[in-house]
Computed example of a mutant assay.
Amino acid sequence: MLKIDKLEVAYGAIQAVKGVSLEVRAGEVVTIIGANGAGKSSLLRCIAGLEPAAGGSIRIADQDCTRLAPHKRVGLGVAMSPEGRGVFPDQTVRENLLLGAYARRQDKAGVQRAIEREFERFPRLREREAQLAGTLSGGEQQMLAISRALMSEPRLLLLDEPSLGLAPLIIKDIFKAIRQLRESGLTILLVEQMAKQALGVADRAYVLETGCITLQGSGAELLNDPKVKAAYLGSH
């Protein structure tokens, strides 16, 4: 579904991603963990087309997308729930969901079914359907950001720090939804600082440090790796 080869992302003289190569197979959940400033969000934004690649290549469903515009990547089946949620604050919950379905707006019945599906996934969104997104709690905004991404019926979902700043009970709900999406067969690339939860839901995982991949393996292997435990799981 996704193959990255020697990808580089730079901001002027600062290189945020340094020759990263990874792949995500159809139906997998792949997690990228790493500290703040490791380049995780830059990597995801480049895959989505929101940051240009300074080098290397991105292939989505075996098509070279390295220079493709973001909206055309959506057309190939890529959707992103960004770090910080990025909801449209002066639009209602329903309007945010409709914006997520913009690429398939002609299919009115299908869009309505998708809205109903997201209300079933996150019942709080149904309760807040007519409420402005900017007035939602952080957890509700995160639910909305994920549902908005899913409205385009993606084949590859990019999740950037979905647990950031949320209460433990809300984090539990978010990861429950990720597990359900995994069971439905959706391909997911997850960037997350909550390493234990992220590795627990992952088929495979990569550790990113200062723009470079330093470890890779199955989620279970990295959960039990002494270096990962010491650096990200609070044990020695």
Rank of each mutant, 00 (worst) to 15 (best):
G75A: 08
K40G: 03
G56K: 07
V93R: 06
A35Y: 10
R45T: 00
R67G: 07
V87N: 11
A54T: 02
R67P: 02
A101W: 04
P70V: 01
C65A: 15
G75F: 00
Q63P: 00
Q106C: 00
V87S: 07
D107V: 04
A103C: 06
Q91G: 00
Y102V: 05
R94L: 15
A101R: 04
R104A: 02
N36Y: 12
G84E: 11
A54Q: 11
R85I: 12
K72E: 06
D62N: 14
I33T: 04
R85C: 07
L50A: 09
S57I: 00
V30D: 15
K40E: 09
Q91M: 15
G100L: 10
I33S: 03
R73H: 03
Q106L: 06
G110M: 04
G49H: 05
A54V: 00
T92A: 06
T92N: 04
L50W: 12
I47D: 00
D64F: 13
T31D: 07
A48W: 01
R73N: 03
N36R: 14
A38D: 07
P82E: 09
P70Y: 07
Y102A: 06
P89T: 09
Q91R: 15
Y102W: 14
D90E: 14
G86H: 11
I33H: 08
A53L: 10
R45Y: 13
A35F: 06
S41G: 12
G34Y: 12
I32P: 00
I60G: 02
Q106M: 01
V29D: 09
V78C: 07
Y102E: 03
V93Y: 08
A114Y: 05
R59V: 02
P82A: 12
K108Y: 02
G55T: 04
F88C: 08
R104H: 15
I33G: 09
R45A: 07
S57T: 14
C46M: 12
R104I: 13
Q112L: 10
T31W: 10
Y102H: 15
Y102K: 05
D107A: 10
C46A: 15
S81A: 15
G75R: 13
A103S: 14
A38H: 13
A54L: 04
R73F: 00
V87T: 14
P82R: 12
E51S: 09
V93P: 01
E95L: 10
E51H: 12
Q112V: 03
L97K: 03
R113K: 15
G39Y: 12
Y102M: 08
G55L: 05
S81Y: 06
L97H: 03
R113Q: 15
V93F: 10
L50E: 07
I47A: 08
L76I: 03
A38F: 13
H71W: 12
S41P: 13
T92C: 09
P89S: 14
L98A: 05
G37H: 14
G39F: 09
G84W: 08
R59D: 03
D64A: 10
R45D: 08
P89K: 13
D107C: 08
S81H: 06
N36H: 09
A35I: 11
I60E: 02
G86C: 05
G56L: 08
V87P: 10
D64L: 01
L44G: 04
